[in-house]
Design a protein around this nucleic acid. Structure first.
Lengths: 116, 116
DNA sequence: TTGACATATTTAGATTTATCAATGTATTGT
DNA sequence: ACAATACATTGATAAATCTAAATATGTCAA
């Protein structure tokens, strides 16, 4: 699981936009992760959330949406966060997830380069 | 390598937009294929093409761009064509490839669904 | 027809990925 | 402190993927 560094830092050179975009596209290439993103986009603050009227959705809600096990959802969320498609914030014992615009901005900028 | 059926046909049910989009994103998740697409988008009718001033680029040019072997490039092109990111047309013994807008249109329509 | 060329397919190996069971860690409530 | 809850990590396995060598197919030229 490669992470995506948007800004150069002391640890190494910045990834090219092309390679960074490939990582974002890879994160988007799984139907379970697309379902998670769709649910985050459409239920930013739902009534039915198990964890109250907080901004974002907690991980347990996403288990229900996907029908996947808790460790598998955790794996997918790590993947989405690593490429900045999702932001995660821990409040108490819950992890609240919401859409991170940075990953989307990256590929929307890159798509015209490849004809999209 | 799943292919992407944009229109329903007699062979089976249409894929959901979500699943079809996942296949397009998967095709976009490889740096070699992004390089190929960038080259197709930026050199639709180049002077240096080995195969003359025809619309599209032939496969041998894409070997040079990617530095990959001929079978590997052929594999990537099959992948891109199968999800309608690239159109292939055989003229004589050459395959001419060019951008296919349909795959891009699919994900550009889908992206807002997931917050992009 | 024969040979050369361009591309596709097959086969195989190394790497990656998705998934879940088991376990670990952190937080809350009693 | 203890138990329960929410989530992360580890370990294992099956499936998918990328790559290239070998081979096959199709096209053109002589």
């Amino acid at each position: 699981m490669s992470s995506l560094v948007l800004q150069p830092d002391a640890r190494g050179p910045e990834k090219s936009v092309l390679e960074a975009s490939a990582l974002v596209f890879k994160a988007l290439s799984d139907p379970a992760r697309l379902k998670i993103l769709a649910h985050l986009a459409q239920n930013q603050n739902p009534d039915g959330a198990c964890c109250g009227p907080q901004p974002g959705l907690c991980a347990c809600d996403l288990e229900t949406v996907t029908g996947l096990s808790q460790p598998t959802v955790s794996h997918h969320m790590k993947c989405l966060v690593s490429v900045h498609l999702v932001k995660g914030e821990k409040r108490g014992k819950w992890m609240y997830y919401r859409i991170d615009p940075r990953g989307f901005a990256l590929i929307k900028t890159f798509l015209p380069t490849i004809g999209g």
